[in-house]
Amino acid sequence: MTSLITNFFIALMCLLHTPLDFDVSKLVQKRMQKEITKVFLCKDFDLEEVTGTPGFQFQNSTYLTDHQIYKINRSGELLGYAFLGSAPSKTDTFEYLILFDQNFIQKKAKIMVYREDYGGEISSNRWLSQFKDTTLGEKFVYGDNISAISGATISVKSMTHSINYVYSQLQRQLAVASR
């Protein structure tokens, strides 16, 4: 039994010594590049930050504590948009990514960083796929067109509110900008 515990500790020490890059902003950027490659099936894109420019001037709120918006371009042609947002979990915040095509139809939602143990279930690809292929006019209602996850209610609601807020803001801002 003592040897089992010793082995366990040795294994643990090895794990803890693995050098892991945990600079959150770098990590998020890396993951965002990866997701864009997967969704738009190309690697030779470039990102142009448009946060705060006409059409993308919106306030943070209780459901969106921070955000960044990028245009995804490929040799001068617009492929779509990437939206990075922060929203509250029970006692912390989490980072998420939404990818839109050039017509603002949602292609993918993904949790980039989830810090708390509680509510981490919202990172499930299956749950997030409920937002896929939606347009900015869509309204999400927890328990109605967005299903619940037992044991993750606070984060499920927070993510649902956050996406509703982002969609409505984008819709309004883009309408104003195109006028």
Partner: peptide, 24 residues
């Protein structure tokens, strides 16, 4: 008007106590 939920209040608390404390 902005204060709606418990977790939002906790977040505001977190902002007021920037060193990473959480109460609940």
């Amino acid at each position: 008007l902005l204060q709606i939920n418990g977790y939002q209040r906790i977040l505001q608390n977190l902002e007021a106590v920037p060193n990473g404390m959480t109460f609940g």
